[in-house]
Design a protein around this nucleic acid. Structure first.
Lengths: 358, 358
DNA sequence: CGCTCATGCAGAAACGTGCCTTCGCAAGGC
DNA sequence: GCCTTGCGAAGGCACGTTTCTGCATGAGCG
């Protein structure tokens, strides 16, 4: 009745394929999904008819029936109201890219969602699991997802006792300690830090590692803070750091743009890099290969982070998860360039924990 | 029967809310969605019970019933096999960020999908519409989507007669012509081009605009091509360009990293910027504000592109689309810095079509 | 008083799959 | 000749929601 009228108005459904092929709905479903016991002739016939009608199974109906949507959420952190830290630092872009690639390779697609609790949009999409970036201690979104039985993998070790399914992170303390040792090996007498006012785990761990290192080697800490989400504040903070009476002769910048900011500040203050000032910053950008001089960078390996997070998440989705959260630590890489070497370079790439290199 | 057993095994459904509130399913649905004619007392009561049970409507069921998923696809171009151009150039990251933000503001979420026809993953997600980046002439994915009645908005004016719902683009010819005029105004005698071997619309339009300009001013074209997806090839091509016997005294680089590549190449060749070589590149990166010297950049305004594309798409989804494709041209912005000025700077920002600036 | 009409709510039909159950039928063992 | 076995395929329910239709009830009105 109403079915015969909807000829070209609606997309072809599994019923139409069954009718056109002269078989039942079950047979069509089994033939297309490779299930059941059917002779190859029937399978081919059904597939051919389905192709001819341009049949596409309804993702919504399949999701409703099977409970699996093939969608993975990826939270993007928001500073303030509107803007998303997506390209603020190349880290996020690289990580998202790797995560997208890894998800697609296993038949999943990524959905970009805001870390803030935009309730309407979160509950409007059926998620098989979620990757969250640096969740806060008692993140309401994460808690709600876990309550619903949806696996959550965190990029960044959760601070409190947030019961995530798994987490991936670098060993930030070890990375910073190794990097500071490298600067000291290069002849640094007083190492300064350019850090952020934000309270995220990365900033916190890196800063405390710096303070511990200063304590260990008996140096007074010399650091400047600025709101990392403000692209202009970094240049100002770099200037402040180099204008101090206790000016450092080596600086580590926690954020991606700090390298160019510090280079520009050094030029303004008449400081030569690396002769008067040693420089390292944490960055994933390739531009530091061609700056004048090339800048030593600490890479957090966002591609490996993103890939590992998605792999762990899909493993948890497809297999029943373990009781305890799975932990995976990704090693960092210190890419040594001219800016942190007072003597002719010995090696180009070194591991972060090479402490015995006296 | 089977319903009473699934107490905590399954999430609370609308039935459970109805039973707990002592009303019918219809009343629950109407109360939560603000439809129907219900007294406020009933509405509040139902909302309260739903909250108490932690009820979350099933996105899959809603999508199946209403035909709207609240999901928008965003294609990412792939070079070769695996890698996605996501962070290759800051353009994509900025554009995706703005698109995500605009979509979320209107209650939609973005799904990242590969431009190549990964059939399984495309048909596994229910899309209300899609934004495609620079589709090829007869893109099979776009054709299939349009056949299913799904709106498609293109970033980049479609080359052939691809019947997209709408498209957003810059006026690349005008931008390049204005930029070359600016270089000529600054005293350039022979302007070179660093371009790509790829066949995408942006590269093609920009290159032909350059050739037309050369033809108009009576200059022999001087250009070098390289595969834009290879991050190392740009530095080599920049070197080639400056090593030519007919070395240009001004260069425009089509891609984001070309600025640093050309600066490094100029240093190697002993050329001072801007005294011996004027420099402009197309980039969205903030680093060119702090390079030595700061580099003039052409911005394609990816934030406005991404926002406009999503706005047009959602308009097409929610209102019945017009017959003819909607076209929107976003103006570019030439951000003039030291690298393209031989004389003391007169202005910092100028419109691309300022030709009467003798 | 009987008729209309607005109000407040319930019943039930879809939406398009996946899968569990059943069922016919032909062949083979007793 | 009857029961078992296995193959091939059909019937029908369930997933959880939206929404169309429709039934009571009480008030307004001629």
């Amino acid at each position: 009745m109403s079915r015969s009228t909807g000829r070209r108005l609606t997309r072809a459904g599994i019923r139409d394929v069954a009718a056109a092929a002269g078989v039942s709905i079950t047979t069509v479903s089994d033939a297309l999904n490779g299930k059941g016991r059917l002779p190859d002739a029937t399978r081919r016939h059904v597939r051919e008819v389905a192709d001819r009608l341009g049949y596409r199974p309804s993702a919504a109906a399949r999701t409703l029936r099977t409970g699996k949507s093939g969608l993975i959420g990826l939270t993007v952190t928001t500073y303030g109201d509107e803007p998303f830290t997506f390209t603020e630092f190349a880290y996020f872009a690289e990580m998202a890219r790797a995560a997208t690639s890894a998800a697609l390779a296993r038949g999943y697609a990524l959905v970009i969602l805001p870390a803030t609790s935009r309730h309407d949009v979160w509950s409007n999409v059926a998620l098989d699991g979620t990757v969250v970036i640096d969740p806060s201690d008692h993140d309401p979104v994460v808690t709600e997802l876990l309550r619903q039985g949806i696996p959550v993998v965190s990029d960044g070790r959760p601070a409190g006792t947030l019961p995530v399914t798994a987490w991936v992170d670098n060993d930030h303390e070890a990375a910073v300690l190794g990097l500071l040792d490298h600067l000291a090996d290069s002849g640094a007498r007083r190492v300064g830090l350019l850090t952020g006012t934000t309270t995220d785990t990365y900033t916190r761990l890196s800063t405390t590692a710096y303070l511990h290192w200063c304590d260990r080697v008996g140096q007074d800490p010399v650091y400047e803070e600025y709101p990392a989400h403000d692209p202009c504040a970094g240049a100002v903070a770099a200037d402040r750091l180099l204008a101090r009476p206790d000016r450092p002769d080596a600086v580590y910048g926690l954020f991606d743009p700090n390298g160019t900011d510090l280079l520009a500040a050094a030029r303004r203050h008449g400081l030569r890099v690396p002769d008067d000032l040693l420089l390292v910053c944490c960055s994933e950008s390739a531009i530091y290969r061609t700056t004048e001089p090339p800048v030593t960078t600490l890479s957090l390996k966002p591609r490996r982070i993103g890939t590992a997070a998605v792999q762990l998440l899909i493993d948890a989705i497809e297999g029943p998860g373990a009781e305890h959260p799975v932990e995976r630590v990704i090693p960092t890489e210190l890419i040594v360039r001219t800016s942190s070497q007072r003597r002719p370079p010995r090696t180009t790439v070194s591991a972060p924990r090479s402490r015995a290199g006296g």
